[in-house]
């Protein structure tokens, strides 16, 4: 291993700068609006300059950087590597499926899966049924709470309109009501299930985390700050 990660990165940047310089010379140079005399330095000037600075500094790091001070960080264990890979893989899946499946489904599955696997030291195939059961239960639980919330909001809307009580058609108000009802349901569910199963149940833990996090993010980002989180397959 003659190549430390630092010099490896420098090498990558050398290659990147070469590509970047080639790319910046290929940029089409159009005239600035109203620039008949060609006084504008043009679209290429800064990219080309930046490319050369990048090339110079990465070359310097690659050649001059003292080699003796190798990182003496402990090596990452293979199981930790596995954990990081799972997290990354799921994040990429999350981004790819976000628009198709929608925020609610994606987030529940993402959080549940990661919380489930991050806590397990050695993954075995026989855990699959347990995982899948939990996943289904978690998804249904989230969907149920979400649907109930939508139902309440919708009902309030139409009721508010038919009775002319403008308070109910106020989105902040209905979000607030929904929040309290759902928080109550969520807490009751947590409480009851803890009662039923006295032992610290590891299977239920990720489910509640997944549902709770999904609903809270939905409430804060979607309801209060009006971000239109993708609906995906959940059309209602």
């Amino acid at each position: 291993m003659g190549l430390s990660i630092r010099r490896l990165i420098a090498l990558v940047f050398i290659a990147f700068s070469v590509f970047y310089i080639i790319f910046s010379f290929s940029i089409e140079s159009r005239r600035m609006i109203g620039d008949e005399k060609g006084w504008d330095p043009g679209s290429r000037a800064i990219p080309v300059g930046t490319g050369f600075i990048m090339l110079a500094s990465s070359l310097y790091i690659f050649t001059k950087e003292e080699r003796k001070r190798e990182e003496n960080k402990e090596k990452i264990k293979p199981e930790t590597k596995r954990v990081i890979l799972i997290n990354l893989l799921l994040s990429f899946l999350y981004v790819f499926l976000f628009r198709r499946l929608g925020f609610i489904l994606c987030t529940t599955v993402f959080i549940y899966t990661l919380v489930y696997f991050n806590r397990i030291k050695n993954v075995q195939i026989k855990l699959l049924p347990e995982y899948l059961t939990g996943l289904t239960a978690g998804t249904i639980f989230t969907l149920l709470i979400y649907s109930l919330g939508r139902f309440i909001t919708r009902y309030l809307y139409s009721w508010g309109r038919s009775t002319d009580i403008s308070l109910f058609t106020n989105s902040n108000f209905s979000a607030g009501i929904t929040f309290f009802i759902l928080a109550a349901i969520f807490l009751i569910a947590v409480f009851l299930l803890k009662r039923w199963r006295k032992n610290k149940n590891h299977m239920l833990f990720p489910i509640f985390i997944a549902t709770g996090v999904t609903e809270i993010i939905y409430l804060v980002f979607g309801q209060i700050f009006m971000v239109s989180l993708a609906k995906g397959v959940i059309f209602w």
């Binding site: 249904i140 969907l143 149920l144 649907s147 109930l148 939508r150 139902f151 059309f235």
Partner: peptide
């Protein structure tokens, strides 16, 4: 319950 709500929507 879910199916019920769904059909409602």
């Amino acid at each position: 319950t879910l199916v019920f709500i769904l059909s409602n929507y």
